[in-house]
């Protein structure tokens, strides 16, 4: 199971590097996306003609979120298995991808202006970034806390570790 997760990670990483390489050949790849603000040299203002990179940009983020979530799966696995926490973890992983996808989708359809939609003090796409991307890991944290004693570090693990300590102590002559 863990070997399979690492093989998937490798495929995702290679795809990510391929997309980054592909982006080199897109128009405006190394052009500045912002310029000095007319009101102050310490401020940047975005240029009017932004290159359209929503597609490759979405893919880059998709790979990042997937790689990070797969690493959490690796960290939560035991003896190569995710056991009963697997379905919860995979659900969190899929929801996290959905939050990211909704951010990109809302951003692509959002119209800024005096009547633009705000939520929680921020424009809608930014609100998804702040409350969704930042806030969502609370579910992973809750899962970690709730499953800690039943899965992550069980009584049997504690006993195994105490045995290992005892054995190491005897070998050192303590």
């Amino acid at each position: 199971m863990v070997d399979r997760l690492f093989k998937i990670l490798l495929v995702l990483l290679i795809c990510l590097l391929a997309v980054v390489g592909y982006m080199y050949f897109l128009p405006g790849a190394t052009d500045a996306l912002a310029t000095v603000h007319p009101k102050s040299s310490g401020l940047l203002k975005s240029v009017a003609d932004q290159p359209d990179i929503l597609g490759p940009g979405y893919l880059v983020g998709f790979f990042f979120v997937s790689i990070i979530s797969l690493c959490v799966l690796v960290g939560m696995s035991k003896r190569g298995s995710l056991g009963w926490v697997g379905k919860w973890l995979v659900s969190c992983f899929i929801c996290y991808l959905l939050v990211y996808t909704s951010l990109v989708w809302v951003y692509s359809t959002y119209e800024a202006g005096p009547n633009a939609a705000f939520w929680g003090g921020f424009p809608l796409p930014t609100a998804i970034m702040i409350y969704g991307i930042w806030g969502f890991p609370a579910f992973f944290i809750t899962l970690f806390v709730v499953t800690y004693d039943q899965w992550f570090y069980r009584d049997s693990d504690r006993k195994t570790f105490q045995d290992l300590l005892k054995k190491a102590g005897m070998e050192r002559g303590v």
Partner: peptide
């Protein structure tokens, strides 16, 4: 508008 958008002036990538 981009400055207060989710990617700011740095851009999405």
């Amino acid at each position: 508008p981009e400055a207060i958008g989710p990617w700011g002036t740095l851009g999405m990538v």
